[in-house]
Amino acid sequence: MEDAKDKVWPTGLTEAESEELHRHLIQGTQIFGMIAALAHLLAYIYSPWLK
C-alpha cells in the first residue's frame, strides 16, 4: 500500500497523473481560445458587426 500514499482523494489518481490531466485541460482550453479568437477575427473581416 506504499503507493497509495500519493493518491489524491477522491479520484484515486496520483498527483503526477492528475497534473497530467490538468495539463491536457489547460492546453485544450488554450487551443480553443486561440481558435475562437481567430474565427471571430475572420468573421469580423467578412462582416463587421456593430455597424
Binding site: I35, L38, L42, A43, I45, Y46
Partner: peptide
C-alpha cells in the same frame, strides 16, 4: 472551425 470564414475572406466576399 476557422475554415468557412477563411474561405469567405479568401474569396473577398462580404466586406
Amino acid at each position: 472551425a476557422i475554415m468557412p470564414f477563411a474561405l469567405l475572406v479568401l474569396s473577398g466576399a462580404g466586406q
